[in-house]
Structures are given as structure tokens and as C-alpha cells.
Design a protein around this nucleic acid. Structure first.
Lengths: 343, 343
DNA sequence: TGGTGCCCTGAAACCGGTTTCTGTCACGCA
DNA sequence: TGCGTGACAGAAACCGGTTTCAGGGCACCA
């Protein structure tokens, strides 16, 4: 019992029926008499038969699997993405393959290899070259997650730029701040690139000159601490630090508090994502909420439907709305007006 | 070019050779004349042929995939695990399947289903029932990661209990503290259970009475903030908070600082893991370093070797050493003696 | 009694690879 | 010249399922 080496033909022999009948019973397809069904089920039960996925997938010509490609895993953002993706894939009986391309040179090749094992792939924006993306899309359905690809490839992202413009304008206009620093590496991901653009856009709309350069660091808390070290030197410190995500912002906050600065009195800090910690730190973090799980779930749904019907699917670019969340770290007294960038 | 529907037989027909020859060329096995090889390679190149993984896997009777089963993804611990696991799997040309069981009722079934799709599985300790674990192990090689299973199942873990005893003794003896609180849910995972046991053990070794109950919360920063709210009420606050991991400790730290407490003067806080942030917060966090990536990499190696040779593999229980890292949050002045527990 | 149609069953083909097994041919050597 | 040998190619079997297709048995009807 429970032997993993038992096959359809084995069960067929033991039950004294044909393999076709076993298949029909185990899938509930076609017409089978009560007597046959009973005999087959008995044999299946007794020997713990479960159909091998490979044989089944080969016959069905679908893998029953979805791929998810990351640059590298870091922070709550990615774990949320994975879970959102998984929440759609598993009920559809598809397994989730993940691949972290960072630190490996032949990542394009590995992604192409993955394409031979799954029914569709979601690629985080900025992870692989555009060339590889196009070759990939010629093989399996592809969705770019948090970013945009060529027009022929679907994508799911949020309205980063308008949201960041809204936030920056709040600091410039409502709080009258002028010397803002942006922390995050625009070359690292489309998300950051768009947020950096939105940040500068707010200056331009007010006929002000935006900072020329961001503080280029990665996206985790330690990188925020690092940024604080670079920024908070006597004399040249900015009035506000606009961070590319909440993780960086929390790091900057820790760095600032550790230097004896008061937030928001001495330094204003803002984030992006609305991670759970954003509401819990003191001061609570002014940020932009984005629907991370929904983002990944939407990508999974698109891939599944494209895989189910390869020809009907036209490439789609979905942009999900965000919500500006005003809390204490920008200098607002308590609860203040919040506004979304809208649907 | 790049068409994904091209098969061996197609290439064989186009090159005017047999499928056997195509297979030999594409795998570099067997003897093929220069002329044949050239013709086959040309056809492969021209039509962008890449062998389908399913057919190949079916013939080889191995999936070329490894499974990783989590309760739910949370925090840097799990992303480190995934990356450690991945770093071993990918060079071995195996893809990584992940499954988060939380929030779903039929998780045992899903894990069994995964077993039909991979060559081996690593299960995070405490994720599925012991019954399911045994049934799983009857089907594919299984390793319990961060925890222990039945004696017949391999496992990889760290020496949680001795490490936590060492840390607790440091607080009790070197700092003369008595009223310590443990934060973490021992029922949630074997790791926490062992750390809780190690914590109490330190009391017993000194003939002291340990706290009867831990503060049961989950393992992320927000849960630490929550724990701080519960613990830091006037009068009953402990002298020190011993946290099940660094994430909780950082949350408690934020909560304590937000209440105007000084750390470590008013409250001592310790963590576990030595996450990157532990060294960067002020005060820096006294904690226990554990080799998370190595843990997962070791699990992947065990699975791979067991899958390669199913009979030779005897179940193995590996316990990796940890290192006690003394920093500022326990009340030590600056750099103080550190000591490993292991090896 | 013969024909029609439905329900059920099993043989065989198929999915896309790998591998074994058989056979051909050229070459070297006695 | 005859024979053994080794290099190479292809036909066919195989991996473990699903599905098509043809046929047997039976009820129903004329």
C-alpha cells in the first residue's frame, strides 16, 4: 500500500479490466458500470494508486504549472507577491515554480528553460532582458508583473507615478518643504523608475527644479539605514526623505532616530506600499497603499486564461489603483484627508 | 523560428535522420558522425527546437523538480530559506515548486499531490501532520526543514535549545535579571517550541522558577509591536523580553521606544536569527546567529542525493551550530565575548 | 425475426522524449 | 579472399497516462 510505482496498467491487470476503464474511473469521465467502478476503486484503494503527473500532463499537453521569476527575493513585498500568485494558482490545480535570477549570469537561459516546464510565466519587471522577454512570449503566455514589457506582452502594475506625484506635492505644497531627497534606485526596477519620475513631476508642475539624482540603494531596511548614514550629515541634510518603499523608509527612520533626530519635526520621512509596520511605528508612516496580492493574483488569472485558450488572448495592460495614506511622519497632526489616485 | 510545437520527430524528418539520432545529438550521447550532427544541429537551430520537459522527464522517470512546503510566507527568514534552497536546486537543473499551506483546509492533500510532481520535498517543521509526513515519505524523499519528524524521515535544524539557554543564562547571570518574558508561540513551530524549552531550561539550571506561559504571537514585526502593547503596561512590565526571532524583537523595540522607554536601561530586548537589521538598529540587538541559507541548501542537497539513489539513503538528522551574538540591547557596554554553541 | 440505437468495454494510437537492439558498412588483419 | 571488429544509423519499445474508435450485448420497435 502506498507504493508509488503502481501504474494504470498494473491496476487494470489487478482489477481485471482495461487501462481505459481505469482511466475513466479515476477521472470520472465516460460511462462505467457500477460493477466495474467498484472493482477498479477497490484496486486503487488497496494499492494506493495515484496517477503520475507526468503521464497525465504529457497526454493533456499542459504542465499544470505556473512560473514566477524574480530578480531576488527580498522583503515583505515579494512574499506578498508569491502568496497572491499562489492563491490563484493552487485552486486551479497548478503548481508554482519560482526562479531567482540574481547572482547568476545565465538567467535568460534559465527562464527559457523554465518555459518548457510551465503553462505560463509571470516575470517581475526589470528581471530579464527585453529580448529574452520576447522570445519567452513566443513560447508561452507571459505577464510582466510590476512593470511593462513590449506592447505584445501583457502586464499588471500600479499607477506609481501619479501616486508619487500626489505624495510629493503634499510635501511641497501642504507642508511647504523644498529640500527633498529621493531614496531608491530607478535603474533597479520599473516601479522605482516610475516613482522617481512621479517625484520629479511634482516639482515641475510647481515650476520648481527637482533634485538631479536619487540616493541609489536597494529596497530593504538595511539599505534605508545606509541611506540615512549618507544623507544625515551635518549641514546638507534634506528636510524630507521620500523613500521608494516602506522598507527603506523604516530603515531611514531607524537611522534618524538613532542619531537623535525627531521625526517629523527635524526630518520628514515617507514610504510606499503601506506595509503592516507602516501604521505601527512611531511616528506612523505616511505612505501609498498598493494592492500587492491583488497584483500577483491578477497576473496568475491572466496567465491561466491565456494558457486555457492561447489564441483568444490579446495582450492586456492592467494598472491597479493605489491609495495615498497620510499619517504622522510627514508632519500632519493626526488623521488627515486621504485620497486615492483612483480607478 | 521559435515555434514551441516542434518535436523530435519533426526535426528528424526535416534533417532526414531518425529520432534516435536527433536525441543523441541534442543530448551529446552516443556516437554520431560529423555530417549527421551538422544536419541535425542546423534543423534544430533553424526551427528553434528545445526538447519538451515532459517527454524527457517521463522517459527519465524523474521530474527534475524539488518541492518546498511552507505554512505561510512571512519575513526575511522564509525568503532566505527559499534562496538557499534555490541556490542548490538550480545548478542541479531542478526547478523549485513552492506551496503555502496556510489558510487552506486540505493542505495534506495538496502536499500529497505535490509529491507526484517532484523528486523530493522539503517541509518546514510543523507545517503538516505527522501522518501526512509519513505517507509523503513513502512516496518521495522528504526532509524536514527547521524541525524534526519521525526517525525514518531526515531533518535539518539548528541547536535552538542550547542557544536559547546560553542567551537566557547571560541575562539571568551576567546581567542579574529575573523577570524575563518570552515572546513567541511554541505551538506554532518546532523552532519556537525548542527555544521556549531552552529558555526555561536556563532557569532550571539555576534553580529558579521559569515563567509559566510565553506571550503567544506570530513571527513578524507587527506581532512584536502587539506583544509590546500587551507586556509594557504599568507595574507588570518585565525587565527583559526574550523574543523568538529578530522580527518580533524589532517590533518590541519599536513599541518600547514609541512608549518612551530606554533600551536597554529600562527594558532589555533580545532576538534570534541575526537578521541584517539586528546590527543596524539602536541599540543593536543581542541575538543568536543561525545559518538560514545553509539550512535550506543542506536540505536541498540531501533531497537531491536521495532522489539520485533512493535506496542508499539512510535518514539523517543534521543539527547545524549557531552563534551567540552579544550586542547592546541586553545591556552589555559594547563588544563583549561571543560564543558559539556548536561544532 | 431482423434492424436500430444505446450503453459499455477494451485494443490501440497518441502525447514527446530516451534507449535498446539490430543491422549495415568499412576497415584491418591473417 | 575471408572474417572479425568497431563505428554509426534507424526501427521499435518504452515511460504512464488519456482518448479515439470499433465492436459486443441488449432493449426496443416494427
Amino acid at each position: 500500500m502506498g507504493n508509488s510505482r503502481v501504474t494504470v496498467r498494473e491496476i487494470a491487470r489487478l482489477a481485471g479490466v482495461s487501462v481505459a476503464t481505469v482511466s475513466r474511473v479515476s477521472n470520472g469521465t465516460g460511462q462505467v458500470s457500477e460493477e466495474m467502478r467498484r472493482r477498479v476503486l477497490e484496486a486503487i484503494e488497496e494499492h494506493g494508486y495515484r496517477p503520475d503527473h507526468l503521464g497525465r500532463a504529457l497526454a493533456a499537453r499542459r504542465h499544470g504549472a505556473l512560473g514566477l521569476v524574480f530578480p531576488g527575493l527580498s522583503g515583505p513585498y515579494f512574499t506578498e507577491l508569491i502568496q497572491g500568485f499562489e492563491s490563484e494558482a493552487v485552486p486551479a490545480r497548478a503548481s508554482v515554480h519560482i526562479l531567482c535570477t540574481h547572482l547568476r549570469e545565465d538567467s535568460d537561459d534559465q527562464v527559457l528553460e523554465m518555459a518548457r516546464r510551465v503553462d505560463g510565466i509571470a516575470v517581475i519587471g526589470g528581471t530579464i532582458s527585453e529580448t529574452a522577454l520576447l522570445r519567452l512570449a513566443a513560447t508561452v503566455p507571459v505577464v510582466v508583473l510590476a512593470g511593462r514589457g513590449p506592447d505584445t506582452v501583457s502586464s499588471v502594475s500600479v499607477d506609481n507615478a501619479p501616486a508619487m506625484t500626489l505624495l510629493t506635492r503634499h510635501l511641497l505644497v501642504d507642508h511647504g518643504l523644498r529640500r527633498l531627497a529621493f531614496v531608491g534606485n530607478p535603474d533597479g526596477s520599473p516601479d522605482v523608475s516610475e516613482r522617481w519620475a512621479g517625484f520629479r513631476q511634482a516639482y515641475r508642475e510647481l515650476d520648481l527644479t527637482p533634485p538631479a539624482e536619487p540616493v541609489r540603494v536597494a529596497m530593504q531596511q538595511p539599505d534605508g539605514v545606509l541611506a540615512a548614514e549618507r544623507l544625515l550629515v551635518d549641514g546638507t541634510a534634506p528636510q524630507a526623505v521620500v523613500c521608494a518603499n516602506d522598507e527603506i523608509a523604516l530603515g531611514v527612520l531607524v537611522g534618524a532616530l538613532g542619531r537623535g533626530l525627531r521625526v517629523p519635526e527635524d526630518l520628514v520621512i515617507t514610504g510606499f506600499d503601506d506595509a503592516p509596520m507602516a501604521a505601527l511605528v512611531s511616528p506612523s508612516l505616511t505612505t501609498v497603499r498598493q494592492p500587492i496580492r491583488d497584483l500577483a493574483a491578477e497576473a496568475a488569472r491572466q496567465i491561466l486564461s491565456a494558457a486555457a485558450d492561447p489564441h483568444a488572448a490579446a495582450p492586456e495592460s492592467i494598472v491597479l489603483p493605489t491609495e495615498f495614506v497620510v499619517r504622522r511622519s510627514c508632519g500632519c497632526p493626526a488623521e488627515a484627508p486621504t485620497g486615492g489616485t483612483g480607478k
